[in-house]
Design a protein around this nucleic acid. Structure first.
Lengths: 140, 140
DNA sequence: CAGTATAAATTGATATATCAATAATTGATA
DNA sequence: TATCAATTATTGATATATCAATTTATACTG
């Protein structure tokens, strides 16, 4: 039975959480996807980052990053700044609008995170983290 | 930091495991995606199942199931059997070729599952399962 | 029985995932 | 320095995710 497989439950947990956040984003009319939010958050946490680094941090494909950044640029939430010394890559950063957007909605997303671990002790969280890390290493 | 968020690690674990299996599938020339395999496995486990039920069991959207079944049908791995008493739905089952395919490759996929939990005791696995279930409930 | 609601599958539109191929640039080296 | 290799981003092709709308069929209700 597929439900008994741990990897299936891991995937399910990820999906359920993502769907919850997406529904909330939609309900609040944020006009953004969870993947887009994650990129904004990473850009917010790093001043000046390349697309390659963004891909690594977000665990996504560079091709996918290109396309999502196109959307975020269309929404005027991020900028692609040319780097004179290296014309192969851009520095990605938040626009004013993007920074305000992240600022405003960070509490909402943080509430989702908190909700996800409701009832889990510090120790529970550490345990879970450790077990996940071990599975990740097994699959390397 | 996004790496410190449990949901991020959960998502990462799911991605890493899926990528591992997909690479193996590709390496062996199975010509199938992980999502397609999951559908085949569920169909294998249930004699006669509707697309709606398949969507529920696989945690996927009915629209997505339609498209993936189209591909599996093109590969002649599954059949859509019309139900005379209810012409709104089909019974999905494995073709001879599909049954042979599942039979042949089940050991491979099972090895991936085993690899993923290498070094985890029975108790570890139960703990992990419980923690995941609690997060799932939190996000409902 | 007619009209309406519900249900299952499909289709369309848009976003994401992934691999392969390509373009432009930079680095390495003979 | 000229050539070749490696790097970064982009594009194309195909599969999947999701929502809304549609189609076809069945169920319900007055």
């Amino acid at each position: 039975m597929i439900e008994e497989i741990l990897l299936f439950q891991i995937d399910k947990t990820s999906k359920v959480a993502k769907q919850y956040s997406q529904r909330e984003f939609d309900r609040l009319g944020l006009n953004i996807t969870v993947e887009q939010w994650i990129l904004l958050k990473i850009v917010h946490e790093s001043n000046h980052i390349s697309q390659k680094e963004l891909a690594e941090k977000s665990l996504r494909d560079p091709a996918s990053i290109t396309r999502t950044l196109d959307l975020l640029q269309k929404k005027e939430l991020i900028n692609r700044l040319p780097i004179p010394e290296n014309r192969r890559q851009y520095n990605i950063n938040l626009s004013k609008k993007g920074a305000a957007f992240v600022q405003k909605n960070m509490p909402i997303v943080d509430a989702h995170r908190k909700k996800s671990i409701e009832g889990l002790s510090e120790k529970d969280q550490q345990t879970l983290n450790n077990l996940l890390k071990r599975i990740q290493e097994n699959m390397n």
